[in-house]
Design a protein around this nucleic acid. Structure first.
Lengths: 128, 128
DNA sequence: CAAACTGATATCCATTGGATAGTATATAGG
DNA sequence: CCTATATACTATCCAATGGATATCAGTTTG
């Protein structure tokens, strides 16, 4: 009864051979690709929102529990910093967080081309 | 005991006023931002992979169940098409799927800057 | 002084994703 | 000819994540 290998076993057999596979897309997707992360970055980068409540109100569907967890993760990953001044909390992008604007612009461009009513998309294209 | 409004109720109160808020980043993130979607697109766009098994083997952690579901969703969203020729299945990017390369390139650039060992990152920058 | 707003946290349930095993069909080798 | 292997999946089951709601402690505001 020779047992066949499972999928995970196959992977463990194959991947040690590569040892360190530099895979920048995989890495950056891993850090930035979780739900809400890019939308929070957009609010901070383009709309200059800094407050918990502002970001929460600007993202229908986002709940306080999820926003709190995402902001904590983004701090751990060095994308944002949490500042307390005058008893008030403010979140600010780090330089690493600001570098994500190029990704946001790529999504913006794609969204304009594919997710707007055609007339609006044409107007937007002609302006750029 | 005047009940306070829930978060979801607040949203329903606010958002109908805006009726249609064109939000290209939100839309494109919604379609492309689910786990594995961008990595599958990368495999197809850059590595020219077309087969289920190729994509599966190229993404450690991705399981057949998830890949099958993601490919089906990506077909529904018009990102890929499923072709059967000669009893063999092949997946191909649609033009909409190919437009996602700009997003992939933005992630690539970010990943090179922030998720590679510094020496490797410098080498990669100087070549571009 | 009470209501409302701030930045959260706690509890609970639904959805999604991951690990593993198994299917049907086809081809290859001993 | 029978076994082994590959291909493209599907089926079960469990774990992790996300969403809805309520709540809280500490200001502000009316």
């Amino acid at each position: 009864m020779a047992r066949t290998r499972t999928h995970a076993e196959d992977e463990r057999r194959i991947y040690p051979l590569l040892a360190y596979q530099a895979d920048p897309i995989r890495e950056s997707v891993k850090w930035l690709g979780r739900k809400w992360t890019l939308l929070i970055l957009r609010d901070m980068a383009f709309l200059k929102l800094t407050r918990f409540g502002q970001i929460l109100r600007n993202n229908p569907g986002l709940t306080p529990r999820v926003l709190a967890r995402r902001l904590r993760q983004m701090q751990e990953e060095g994308l944002v910093e949490r500042l307390v001044a005058d008893e008030k909390v403010a979140y600010r992008l780090t330089s690493r967080g600001e570098d994500a604007v190029f990704i946001l612009l790529a999504f913006l461009r794609y969204g304009i081309r594919h997710h707007l009513p055609p007339q609006v998309a044409r107007d937007a294209e002609s302006k750029s």
